[in-house]
């Protein structure tokens, strides 16, 4: 316990400098710190960034380049507070533990698997058009609204995740993509993306009817489907087409 306390006094001595946004050396860089940071990463970061930080639903962290942070201080800030406007939350740990995560993330740089773009972006854009992706998806204000807006999707998803989402869209369906399907008592069939729900009402987007707010008491039947509205393109987009489409999606940032 005493050793802990002495270590923390040293750490706290460095803290005010960081608080003023001056560059500080990460005070938690020992191999033990990297190991502890790695365990925290497995618990709290790997679910999106993948084991070993290779990227999945969240970006690959092994390239040595971080879109939202160029310094250790900035990484500390990102891990502590999250990135506003993205799915990245801050973690609720004390400063020393955040530094350990930063040390672990730094240790990943160049370690293994910087993803190489193998497809052709321009060809991928043609695949996107030929398969009518824009019927449901939107890129830079063009396209449908029933699926997720893809304008910046390459900045937040790994290529492997994008590829998997095309061939197996039901593998990971986030709650903001759940669907609501039902029939009102007057016979209207509604189906679309679930936006909000409470005990009495549901708010949804139906591609045909637009934004709808329904009273459950007026519904003859309804269900919440925790599955994607997107069909699987397994087999129908494959080989070079899939490489090219993935490259195109990865280029959207």
């Amino acid at each position: 316990m005493k050793a802990f306390r002495i270590a923390m006094v040293l750490f706290l001595a460095a803290f005010p400098a960081w608080a003023q946004h001056e560059e500080v050396v990460n005070p938690r860089q020992s191999p033990e710190d990297v190991a502890v940071g790695g365990r925290i990463f497995r618990s709290h970061c790997a679910v999106c960034h993948g084991l070993g930080g290779v990227g999945d639903r969240a970006p690959n962290l092994t390239t040595g380049q971080f879109r939202h942070a160029t310094s250790d201080s900035a990484l500390h800030e990102v891990v502590s507070r999250g990135i506003p406007g993205t799915e990245m939350p801050g973690v609720y740990f004390n400063g020393a533990e955040v530094w350990q995560v930063v040390a672990y993330v730094r240790s990943l740089s160049g370690a293994a698997t910087d993803e190489k773009i193998t497809g052709d972006v321009a060809a991928g854009q043609k695949v996107y058009a030929s398969k009518s992706c824009a019927r449901c998806h939107r890129v830079n204000s063009e396209g449908g609204r029933s699926g997720p807006d893809l304008s910046r999707i390459g900045g937040s998803r790994s290529q492997a995740h994008l590829r998997a989402a095309v061939v197996n869209p039901n593998e990971k369906v986030l709650p903001n993509q759940w669907r609501f399907s039902g029939a009102t008592k007057d016979g209207t069939i509604v189906s679309g993306r679930l936006l909000n729900e409470d005990t009495y009402t549901v708010q949804m987007f139906d591609a045909r009817l637009g934004l709808m707010s329904l009273a459950k008491a007026d519904m003859a039947s309804y269900e919440v489907l925790k599955e994607s509205a997107m069909p699987s393109y397994e087999g129908s987009i494959a080989g070079k087409d899939l490489d090219d489409l993935t490259a195109y999606l990865a280029s959207l940032r």
Binding site: M1, R5, M8, V36, S43, H44, V91, F93, A96
Partner: peptide, 19 residues
Amino acid sequence: HKNDPIYAEGHRFLGSLPR
């Protein structure tokens, strides 16, 4: 989840965080 807690007076002492 379970991680290695670090005690420092006046700082969070959690040993990880549930999700």
